[in-house]
Design a binder for these strands. Structure first.
Lengths: 213, 213
DNA sequence: CGTTTGGGTGTACGTGTGTACACCGAGAAC
DNA sequence: GTTCTCGGTGTACACACGTACACCCAAACG
């Protein structure tokens, strides 16, 4: 059981992050105390500072950790080897793939999603801004992909972003519900069905939209 | 300066609610301490219990307070003396009126909205459930109103609720942005414009929707 | 090999916390 | 006019909090 210094450090760092994720199931980050976290990890309070300057900084790391996997996932859900022929078929496939990706991924990162749901609006300002920034990136990536469909000429750039915002908000809301529905298969199925129909609705609806009114 | 006992009690009760609203601008309910609230009000800590059993119970009162005005407002925004002739015109009017109502109301109840945004997902469980319940009521009221338009026959009851959920989520997200954009007229105008186009988009899109696919 | 580095420890402090308890004094009730 | 009710007070306690400080000891380094 010889362990290099870096390995050891990384291990307790990971333990601290996990401890915060677990404690945050019950109460927001701002309500956590250093001592509570330390006790959960099994270290003495002051040892915390060997890894993070503050709980807020730790929160920022958790935000990054949460989003890196998610963004890649959603982007991949909109990448096709052989894209569907019609705009309508393409949009339906995008809706379905995105929901599939979400339903598959959320349970694997449940605590991260619960953390995001909580801190997105209730966290320290820096954390809120970090989450908002990541969501904006997702919106822009989505808008870019939508702009590529053949029939997208009727939409202005503004309207593309507004549509992307609608879709991302909807997905976010469903992801939050999924994260909270942990382990209740009936609820998961209901949310999945709602998400699928809602995204289809919005995207098919968008096909009927003309920015020039 | 004679004051009836009931008046006096109501006055400090109000002061406590206001104090919590103000303190909650910076940190979530769960991070507040009794003594902090008491100091802000100007009473001794134990006096708090003359009015509320716990901070959580106080939170529930704030949720009720926040929603009663809002629900009436949104319902009124969808009530027409002489309803527009076409479904399309009706939907556009509903979108516009709802956004107008929101933009007018949010600044008047800014602290309440910020409170809701924070506690909706980060608050004590009872508070979260209360908020969710109120949002479900709003969704159902909206679905009922939409079902009344002549061309609504193509939508199943499920799809009506799913559409209402999409719309309410969008409005909620914009209300939260408005509450945070306090006093920056350019941001308010941008959010207003986004909200208007987004609701129009979703509602006009819904006209093209057919539940039987 | 001896020395340095750095994650983790234990003690000690001043401060803030929730709550129990006895008390006060003015409006309400009779 | 006397008594009762009850919102608000002040003191007191045991506990949790963040953080400063001196210390330990094994991996890393020369």
């Amino acid at each position: 059981m010889t362990e290099t210094r870096g390995e050891r450090k990384e291990r307790t760092r990971r333990a601290i992050l996990d401890a915060v994720l677990e404690l945050c199931e019950d109460e927001p980050l701002a309500a956590l105390s250093l001592r509570q976290v330390a006790k959960q990890v099994g270290i003495v309070p002051t040892a915390f500072y060997r890894h993070f300057d503050s709980i807020e900084e730790l929160g920022l790391d958790l935000v990054d950790e949460s989003f890196t996997a998610l963004r890649a996932l959603l982007k991949a859900a909109r990448t096709f080897e052989t894209p569907p022929a019609s705009d309508r078929a393409l949009f339906l496939a995008v809706a379905d793939n995105s929901v599939d990706a979400l339903v598959a991924h959320v349970p694997r990162a449940e605590r991260h999603f619960r953390f995001l749901a909580r801190e997105r609006l209730a966290g320290p300002q820096a954390v809120r801004e970090a989450v908002r920034h990541q969501l904006e990136l997702i919106e822009r990536e989505l808008a870019t992909d939508i702009a590529r469909v053949p029939g997208a000429g009727r939409w202005s750039g503004d309207d593309l972003l507004i549509l992307a915002n609608l879709l991302v908000n909807a997905m976010l809301s469903h992801a939050e519900e999924l994260a909270l529905a942990s382990g209740r298969p009936d609820v998961v199925r209901r949310v999945e069905r709602t998400a699928r129909r809602q995204l289809r609705m919005a995207l098919i609806g968008a096909l009927a939209w003309d920015s020039s009114r």
